[in-house]
Write a protein that binds this DNA or RNA. Structure first.
Length: 285
DNA sequence: CGCGCCTCCTGTGTGC
DNA sequence: TGCACACAGGAGGCGC
């Protein structure tokens, strides 16, 4: 669920309430919450204790937290992950996975994740950019994102345009919801072959992706409680105005045609049959 | 090596 | 009332 705008909102909350603080204790309540850390949860905790958080950064849907040791905590929220600041006295959440307390006391940081698709990891020497996420492309809100590089790379792909938008090694931060929203604005069906799109068409699509992400970021950043860095559906995330996603059978805001839902990669794609006609042919070889 | 499918996971909603 | 099952979906891993 959380895509770039939600993760960026979380990043800002983390930066505000964790920057400069020294870690006192780390409790791991669920082993699956610690990813790619072969030495185990105890070692994970040991390398964090006594370290000070010096920044909070993001690439696409990944967060990383550089420490004064030169290492970094890498975090991904998956489908349902939350990073919450809570008083130590607050009761444990049902799906509390990791608790981090600080030397200066309240609030503590909690990683809560119902479906355990998310997780934390320690990246050795990863303060500048963790090696674990070096394969993730820059996101379109990154000042160093290359528009022309993206346009050319996408047109070289032999795939469908929605698959390309969801490929985090090509462009990061876009998930199923914002991919559908950007394609609706661009009046493109997600099954259109990338190799047949013109440069101007891809430039326009990229512009819509940026617009969608920026608008959601603007909306999402305003509805969070100060000490509650939340990304689930209860706190404004789903209050965003969506044009197609989840609107099966409802009228297209442009032409009034009923929005359709199609199976796609074990999930769903939403589009307007009139504004976004399905491509006539299969992608060229 | 590019591409695309499968799988991980659990709470919610729906139909019988 | 309770059971069975579809559905939500990011991304690593693997097969072709």
């Amino acid at each position: 669920m959380p895509e770039l705008p939600e993760v960026e909102t979380v990043r800002q909350g983390l930066a505000r309430f964790a920057d400069g603080r020294k870690i006192n204790t780390v409790e791991v309540h669920h082993p699956r919450a610690i990813r790619r850390h072969l030495p185990g949860s105890e070692h994970f905790a040991a390398v964090l204790i006594g370290r000070t958080i010096v920044d909070v950064r993001r690439r696409g849907k990944y967060l990383w937290i550089p420490l004064d040791s030169g290492d970094a905590i890498v975090a991904h929220l998956g489908m349902s992950g939350q990073l919450l600041f809570q008083p130590a006295a607050a009761p444990d959440e049902t799906h509390l996975r990791v608790r981090v307390s600080f030397v200066d006391g309240d609030p503590e940081l909690r990683f809560v994740d119902q479906r355990t698709f998310g997780g934390l990891a320690v990246s050795e020497g990863g303060a500048e950019l963790p090696g674990e996420i070096a394969h993730i492309a820059r996101d379109p809100l990154d000042p160093l994102f290359s528009d022309t590089g993206f346009v050319e790379a996408l047109r070289r792909r032999q795939t469908e345009v929605k698959r390309a938008l969801l490929d985090q090694t090509l462009i990061s931060g876009v998930g199923n919801i914002y991919a559908d929203e950007a394609l609706w604005r661009a009046k493109l069906h997600g099954a259109r072959p990338t190799s047949a799109l013109t440069r101007p068409a891809v430039v326009r699509l990229l512009g819509h992706v940026r617009d969608v992400l920026n608008e959601a970021l603007k909306d999402g950043g305003t509805s969070f409680d100060a000490l509650y860095v939340n990304v689930n559906g209860e706190s404004g995330y789903f209050d965003r105005s969506l044009n197609v996603y989840g609107r099966e059978g409802e009228a297209c805001y442009r032409c009034g045609t009923a929005i359709r839902r199609e199976p796609f990669m074990n999930r769903s794609s939403y589009s307007c049959p009139h504004c976004q006609p399905r491509p006539r042919r299969r992608p060229a070889r």
